[in-house]
Design a protein around this nucleic acid. Sequence first.
DNA 1: CACCATTTGTTGAACATTCATTCAATATGG
DNA 2: CCATATTGAATGAATGTTCAACAAATGGTG
Lengths: 228, 228
Amino acid sequence: MLETVTPMKTAEASDALPETARKGDAEKRGRKASKEVRRLQLIEATIDSLAKRGYAETTMADVADGAGLSRGIVNFHFESKEKLLIATLQHMYDEYSAHWRTSLQKAGDDPARQLQHLVWADFDRSICNKRKLAAWLAFWGEAKSRPTYQALSSSRDAYYQQVFIDLCATLKQSGNYTYDPQVIALALSAMLEGLWLRLMMGTEDTTRETALQAANAFLAAAFPKHFG
Amino acid sequence: MLETVTPMKTAEASDALPETARKGDAEKRGRKASKEVRRLQLIEATIDSLAKRGYAETTMADVADGAGLSRGIVNFHFESKEKLLIATLQHMYDEYSAHWRTSLQKAGDDPARQLQHLVWADFDRSICNKRKLAAWLAFWGEAKSRPTYQALSSSRDAYYQQVFIDLCATLKQSGNYTYDPQVIALALSAMLEGLWLRLMMGTEDTTRETALQAANAFLAAAFPKHFG
DNA sequence: CACCATTTGTTGAACATTCATTCAATATGG
DNA sequence: CCATATTGAATGAATGTTCAACAAATGGTG
């Protein structure tokens, strides 16, 4: 009855599982593997629930049901509901972090190209899809009143912001722009988050394509010599 | 014991009460007035609670306590918790709407000035303060999973967006810009929301002043002939 | 290999707590 | 005295957590 191959909930879910966690082959690979697999399975179910029901309506029972497991299981793998949510947030944060760092590395040495790739990374399907955006928004809504969430909930951290500032400073020099790099970097990163927000809300007029267009328009306006 | 003058919770709270709701003089002005006064009082207490505890932790008891009234009072003036929250959201939506419309009217006929005033309006203290931003964020976090909230929760509605698009189109003509007005309007309004988001989150490096700087930098970059 | 003891994973019911809602009793203004 | 507003305790539903029982895997031992 239980263990009916445990298929993934949605197609999207699989893009967040590391290769070692694929179900078909690693399902019964012993306790040590299973422990990590279960944790990821529950984290994915938590993201599902957050996306579907929102933070306030996400319940332990719903997460367990979503994972196809019994009620008490979550308190075994995570100690409490709060720790499950923190682990989920950490998971999403790590994924986002790894993603833009990889994108940046792949961009090579040209700063304009690097900035372009950073912007593109934000709208990549693996990061920027309804399910995960909804989960992010659910966390953001609670972050201000929960100190534990604050550090993790602005997926773009201080280091990310610094990378933006440095890139803007470099472009300023090579393009003879007059802006304050710190200010223009803030405008740029804020716009990216704002576009995310629109996608999260599901406003009709904003799709991943139009959001990318808007981001490119900003780059062209702010750095005409590089993105004309 | 009860009715100890019922002072306002925070200094900020008073900026959202219409003039007829000031406590000192209108406190005991009869039933008809009292009804509306009570509703506003409870709505303000709800905003307080949302800002302090977040959506998930906001309880009827907390709202009642915050207003200095008894537990059962909320279900008398509002039918249920959900209706209280909807009324609160509607209140904030109306206030935001009225604010930018007034700002736009005061700007006169020059489109550049109008755009400038719209941007400024977003960072006015009466709209853009910790308490209300936190309450907005709390609603946003739940909006996607609650159809009832969706229409009201993106404080910037379709008409607001259209005003932006029209202004950008006008400026494009008079300045010979090459952008698509719709795209640049999206970039601009998304940046404004993103700046709000940063202020909501309480990121250290973003204050109302730096946010305004960033917004101005965007205008200067996108419309150099008008905001150079 | 077979057998059993031990550790680990899982279940589902019981429990305690929190919270929205109801409502009979009471207070207050007209 | 009537209509309305307000109170605060009672109620019931929802939900996070605990735990005793059960299942499965592991590892040693003959």
